[in-house]
Write a protein that binds this DNA or RNA. Structure first.
Lengths: 224, 224
DNA sequence: CGGCATCCGGGAAGATACTG
DNA sequence: CAGTATCTTCCCGGATGCCG
């Protein structure tokens, strides 16, 4: 019914903004809506498809994901791209500026890790875990520890490199890495951050280096 | 009417959370609601009263402000305190952990300042401006520039100090400062960030130092 | 199957009025 | 001044359905 009814929303005239020149306020208008920052997070290590995003954002509904992607696109944080044949699938990727939002997630995440209410037992996406390594690495502990690390987390494959106290990571095959971790992201997170036994995940390669790796990501002290 | 009606909200059973162990996701659950970060921002330079917060958050409604303050309090980011007599007024102040959220605002604000959609002509609170100085100061430009700066922005008075390339600021009387700026926060912001003529605000004291001060806060280049 | 539009129910936000 | 009460509007989340 009401077939040809013109949608009243011409351009969403009521753009619930903050009317505040403060940069932080404008930042909230850009990525402050529910789910927006987490959608962007999932794009930080490379393009993703709609269904992959939906799968790794447990609880988001398809229409909200569509809406967030559209908003992020028109704000210049996300780009829609069609992979060349034979793939020919559409993917979403972060723009350069979108990638520059990573420090926001890092600072926010580091700060929130001090919360007594933080529950590390919740699900965790593979991207989240990789980004957390980049965020939480303790440069002084990692100084002098060098090596390459492969991660097979479900269907996600990442290759990390440890050098000069920094952890770099990108999507890619894990072959030839000094250490290869295989398992679930949440499982590996439990080992690194929750003190779970190493047997929770499968480890191949240099066992001593693997054990060393797991000690490089200390959590900040809880408040209170 | 309906006086004794029991409020149905036992404990807000539907706590719309993200179900995500990622620290950033938890951060959003702590300060991700609309207005929350801006309320906290207004507390970064000392305790504030309800009416002051409402006045400096243009557009927030009283009930939303009440709700946000209550949530921030129960999460441990804000504390409610009663000033001793004869003042005897209630104020809200950030806890230690709440104060540690400042880097989030800084990173978010710096990132958003690159947005082409950012409108610097909007209203700006005095706290926002002071925090923006702390955020945007260019340490290399400020190296070797030392002095004290008073700000009389409406009823807000702040005392800043420039030393070692850093800008420190606290609430306080401006007497004896090397330079004293008097006017509206938005006006001073226009001079510092918008290239408006210095006459927009009233300046007392060391004019050369004042002119130098205004050059220490470069904006990042816009995207695109 | 992927992406998007539509409809619906509930809840959060906005505006205004009112009270101690 | 410091909120509370009420009403309306809008957004979020879930379900369904269309269409390439």
């Amino acid at each position: 019914m009401k077939s040809g009814k013109i949608t009243k929303r011409l351009k969403s005239e009521t753009k619930r903004g903050y009317e505040d020149a403060c940069g932080a306020a404008h930042g909230l208008e850009l990525i402050g809506e529910r789910w927006a920052l987490l959608v962007l997070r999932e794009l930080m290590l490379g393009p993703r498809r709609f269904s992959g995003l939906k799968a790794d954002l447990p609880g988001i509904s398809a229409n909200v994901l569509t809406q967030r992607l559209g908003e992020l696109e028109e704000r210049g944080l996300v780009r829609r791209r069609k992979l060349p044949p034979p793939a020919s699938v559409q993917v979403y990727e972060a723009t350069e500026w979108g990638l520059e939002a990573e420090p926001i997630m890092q600072v926010l995440g580091k700060w929130a890790a001090r919360s007594p209410a933080h529950d590390p037992g919740l699900p965790l996406s593979a991207v989240s875990l990789m980004l957390s390594f980049r965020t939480m690495i303790d440069a002084s502990r990692a100084d002098g520890v060098n090596g390459s690390f492969g991660f097979r987390l479900g269907a996600h494959h990442y290759l990390g490199r440890l050098a000069d106290g920094r952890f770099e990571v990108e999507r890619g095959e894990v072959g030839g890495a000094d250490v290869i971790f295989t398992g679930q992201a949440a499982g590996l997170a439990g080992v690194v951050y929750g003190g779970a036994p190493l047997q929770t995940v499968e480890v191949e390669g240099d066992a001593a280096l693997a054990r060393r790796f797991l000690t490089l990501f200390p959590l900040p002290p809880k408040v209170g």
